[in-house]
Each structure stands twice: as structure tokens, then as C-alpha cells.
Write a protein that binds this DNA or RNA. Structure first.
Lengths: 335, 335
DNA sequence: CTGAAAGCGCTTACAG
DNA sequence: CTGAAAGCGCTTACAG
């Protein structure tokens, strides 16, 4: 049951460990080792079921072949989809992924430092929360490969990839306006995040572009209880001024909208249109007919990983790259 | 920007690396190192921001302080909740968690072997799928700490923890019967999994116990397209024999039920009751009034981790332990 | 073409 | 009480 080591293979093949290492790492040619010998070594390794001890490799090379994925929360469909894509893509590059969720302010710093401190990962993909600014800065300054996603810090030069929030909202607004809606409410959250600002701007610019002067914005408080938020949303939907469409600026807000629909017994004000900026996959829980601005998670994830890989590849510092992915408009059909 | 090593600390403190190692690993007493010296060393380490290189520790000790969590799918609320609990609990024991999802048959074996082969994790928590039987057996035979959850293989002696499926279904059935429902349909999946068998048995035994002879079972085919499944479920709900209650045996089936509700425009047959074996958290997407048998994810996760830790602790072989957690009945209210 | 040797950063018997 | 030394399993200059 003992694991076979490189040395074992060397002994079995009658060569030195160095030779085995060269062959198994594809440097046979380069080291001008005869084909016959190389094949023999490979055969022995295969037969004995040899797998290099990655821990030893890591210690020796200083690379762990692991990536750290730090997200806000592990419960949530967005994370789930995201993580899966990252995992698959990373595997294609020969990397494994270690996850950490920040959940709350305190822990996040700890997690970061802990993983970082032990230098066990070769790079990071992070969904930053407002409190992480300094951690990210530290990471960037120590020249660690990092990619931010879903948000970023305007003051820090780190590559980031996110959905084009502005475009998403304007797309949705165009859709509504084209269908004749005019009294369009916008439900957002009172958090000072850059992506929220962009979404709000999209709403306002769209109205302005079409000469609609009525602006109806509901700011849901960041950390109210759910019930209170639902009450707010419910009032917003049902009360004056008699909106004919509602735009939910986030996934979570859309869910509050869904709950409101439930509460109202699925009896919405006549023809009320609902549209929502969707993370991912919550979509399918909405009733048919609801429109969503879908975040292209797969694309975001893939892009983030590419960005990270290119950083790891060159190792010579990090350039600030911003990639914005276009979201698409999807109408919840009956399938 | 160079990381400080143990040797650096030793030099700075004017002692040998061994002494530093002893002190930092809490073996000062045991090695009868003077308090003064120990404190000095600790102070130097703190000041220099020393963190041991875990890779080196792993190589030397043969322990990685990492756990492998292998699940069927990373997208899904069950995984998300589960993973979070495991992560937190593992951290409390000083372990990190590496995730891998099997998604499909081919990859799973690969993943397993790959992680296992590189001996990078100290133990495994696995949600087994039918095809993994041999992998699990191999793991168990090599005396690796493993805990199965959510399912298990009757033929393999590996500790496992799962919800008490039988109890869950009977609980739900009692609930329905008590409320006067008699024509209760059971929607299940035609997969030969031990937990499905137990759920079905719970349904049948409950009927029998109350002398209800009408058995209405819908077997939804394991890998049909979604539309076809929905059609089946829809027929089952609306068609003869005029069921007055439906029991969905899994989370996924419950979602098909939800979709059916959507399709029917929320107009269910009069007073039709729906009950569903819920993984986790999908619950909140259902309309109010629906009853769920809730899997206590947190408890399952914690138990699984405890089981794993105790195995890792003693290292002397694995005993077959089965832990069944009681699920609870929850009615989706308006909050 | 191939091997002996150093070294990645630790831990831990072993010898004072 | 404390230090010198071996060794975990690899990779990679270096020397033939």
C-alpha cells in the first residue's frame, strides 16, 4: 500500500532519479535521453501507478498548482455556477481550486491572510466586498496574481471582469419602453457599490433618452429584515403612482419581488411588467413571462480564469485590465 | 517581500531552528525550554510575521490539513449550504477544504484518483453516486478516512450520515393523512438508490398503516428531458384519479411540481396539497402553503465532519457507523 | 546521453 | 535545556 516514489521508479528502471524526473516531465528530448530509455521509464511508471507527490513538487518548485477562489457567499446560485466553471477551466490548466467565502467582514481578512500567508495558492480570483479593499491592495502590491470579478475598486489597479451593468440595464429599459411602458419603477439597494451606481445610471439615462421625466426609485435598505423589505417592495408595486413596470436591480431584490407576487396571490396589477438583473439560475424559479437580464456567468468565469492564467504565465507584474461582458435579455418562457 | 522562514527566526533569535520549531509548535514545556527563551522566540516570530510554510510541513509530516469534499454537483442549493458548513467546521479543526464535483461518471473517477493519488488530502467526504462504488471501496481499503453522506453502499463498510428518509416520508404522510387527505400520489424517480427505496417504503407503509389501499405512484424517468417530465407530472396532478395530495420524493421533482404550478397559472385542483422532500433552501421559492420535509443540512454536515475527524484522529482503521438525522416538517409560511 | 548532489522549509529522533 | 543532522519526495543546475 506504500506509495511508489520517483526513486522507486528509478531503481526499477535501473536509472537515476534525475533521469526519471526528466523523462516524466517531458524533458527527455531536451536532455537527449534515448527514446528507448524514455519509453521504458514511462512504462515502468505506468505499471507501478506512479503519481508524483505534489506536495514535494510544490516545495521544490514553489508552485502549488492551486488557485484560491474567494467569494462573498457559497450559498447562492451564482457562486455555484461560477465555481463549477472555474473548477473545470482550472483543471484544464492543471490547477485545482480552493474556495473560501467571506460571509462577514472579520473572517474574510483572516481567510485571505491565512491562505495567502501560507503561500499555498498560485493566484486568486476574488469577488470583492467593500471591506476587502486593503487586502486586495496588499495582494496586488506583493505581485500576487489576482483577478477581481463582479466588482472592483476604482483606486486599485487589478484586472477585473464583470458584466456590463450599464448595458444590461439600458437593454432592459429599451425592452420595456419599446413595449410601451412608461411608468417604470427601479428597485435598488442603498449600497455604495460601483456596479449599483452604473445600474442606476443606466435607468436614468434610458428614461432621459426617451424623454420620460417620471423617475420612481425605491432604495431598499442594505440590511433591513426581509419582512420589512418585502413590505416596501409590495407598497412600491401596488401603491401610487401606479407603476406599469418594475425593474429590480439585483437578484436578491428580484426574489423579494417574487415573494411579493406570492403574497399577492399571483394577482399583479394589470399588465405589470417585471424585469430583473439576474445572477444566475434563480431565473427558473420565476413565473413564466418575467424578463431577466442574465449575467453570463460562464463567460465571466472563463474570462476571469484566462486573465489569471495570463498573469501567472508572465509573472512580470500585473497590468490593469478591465473586461466587461455583455449580458443578455431573457424572457422566462414555459420551458 | 521575501517570506521569513523558520531559519530566519532562529537566526534572529540566536537559537537553532529546532528550538524555534519546538517552541512554535507548543512543545516548549515538553522540551524543557525556558519560558524566557520561548517568549522571546514567539515575540520574534510575531514581529517578523512568520507563518510556517504549510507545504514544507505537509511534506515532512505527511499531513496536508486539507479535506476533500466530493459532491455530485456544485450547482445546487444543497451543495452550497453543505459546503459552507463543512468549510466553517473544518476551519475550526484547522483544516481547509478542497471541492470536487463529479458531474459525470467519467470525470468523477478521475477527480478521485487525481486528488487521492496526489495524497494531498487527509480525508474525504463524499456524496456517492452509483458509479463510485469501486472508488469508495478502494479508498476504504487503503485505510483513508472517508465519510459518505446522503447515500451509501450497503456492501461497503464506510461511515455514512444521511437524513432518515423513511422517517421523513412517514412524517409527511402522517401530516397529510391527519389533515384528511386520502388520495395521495407519490412522485419518485426510477433510480435504484437506497434512499429512494426507503422513501417509497415510507409512503407505502404509511398508507398501509392507515388502511388506505389506493396507491398512486409516478416514476419519473431518470434522464428524460425536462419538458416530458413536466408533462408527466402535470398529467399526474390534473388527471384521474383525482388526487387530493401529492408527495414529491425529491427536491428536483418538487421543482417540476413548481413548474407545473406555474404552467397551470397557479390554479391547482381544489385544495390539492403538495409536499416535498426538500434538499435545502429551494423551499423559499415555493408558493406559501406548501409543506416540505426539510433535510437538516447543517446537522448532516457537522455530523459528517465529526465522523471524519474522529477517523483522522485515531487512524486505526474505520468502523462502519451509520448516523441518521431526523428531518423536520416545515410549512412554507408567508415569511 | 546520464548520475551525484544540493536544496525547497520544515520536524524530530538523537546526541550532547 | 539546546543544537547538528537526517530526511520527507521532488527538480535542476552541475559535472562528467
Amino acid at each position: 500500500m506504500k506509495r511508489v516514489s520517483l526513486k522507486d521508479i528509478a531503481r526499477l528502471a535501473g536509472v537515476s532519479p534525475s533521469t526519471v524526473s526528466f523523462v516524466l516531465n517531458g524533458k527527455a528530448k531536451q536532455m537527449r535521453i534515448s527514446n528507448a530509455l524514455a519509453e521504458k521509464i514511462i512504462e515502468v511508471a505506468r505499471r507501478e501507478g506512479y503519481h508524483p507527490n505534489q506536495v514535494a513538487v510544490s516545495l521544490r518548485t514553489g508552485k502549488s498548482n492551486m488557485l484560491g477562489l474567494i467569494v462573498e457567499s457559497m450559498s447562492g446560485n451564482f457562486f455555484a455556477s461560477f465555481a463549477r466553471v472555474i473548477e473545470v477551466e482550472a483543471a484544464a490548466h492543471g490547477y485545482k481550486v480552493v474556495y473560501a467565502s467571506t460571509e462577514n467582514q472579520q473572517q474574510k481578512a483572516h481567510e485571505l491572510v491565512s491562505i495567502l500567508g501560507h503561500q499555498q495558492v498560485d493566484g486568486y480570483i476574488v469577488t470583492p466586498t467593500p471591506g476587502m479593499e486593503e487586502d486586495i491592495r496588499a495582494l496586488a502590491e506583493s505581485k500576487k496574481p489576482v483577478v477581481l470579478m463582479d466588482s472592483y475598486f476604482p483606486g486599485i489597479d487589478v484586472p477585473h471582469v464583470l458584466v456590463n451593468n450599464y448595458e444590461g440595464v439600458t437593454k432592459g429599459m429599451e425592452h420595456l419602453i419599446e413595449k410601451g411602458y412608461r411608468r417604470i419603477g427601479f428597485v435598488t439597494v442603498d449600497l455604495n457599490l460601483v456596479q449599483m451606481q452604473e445600474r442606476l445610471k443606466g435607468y436614468r439615462d434610458s428614461l432621459q433618452k426617451h424623454n420620460i421625466s417620471e423617475e420612481h426609485i425605491l432604495y431598499v435598505h442594505y440590511d433591513f429584515e426581509r419582512e420589512r423589505a418585502i413590505a416596501q417592495v409590495s407598497d412600491f408595486i401596488s401603491g401610487p403612482p401606479g407603476l406599469d413596470a418594475i425593474f429590480f436591480a439585483t437578484n436578491y431584490l428580484g426574489l423579494l419581488g417574487l415573494e411579493t407576487i406570492h403574497r399577492l396571490g399571483y394577482k399583479l396589477p394589470d399588465n405589470l411588467a417585471m424585469i430583473c438583473f439576474d445572477d444566475h439560475d434563480v431565473f427558473r424559479f420565476y413565473p413564466p413571462g418575467i424578463t431577466c437580464i442574465r449575467q453570463p456567468v460562464e463567460e465571466i468565469a472563463k474570462t476571469a480564469l484566462e486573465l489569471l492564467m495570463s498573469q501567472i504565465g508572465k509573472t512580470n507584474g500585473v497590468t490593469n485590465t478591465k473586461v466587461e461582458i455583455s449580458p443578455s435579455l431573457v424572457v422566462r418562457g414555459t420551458s
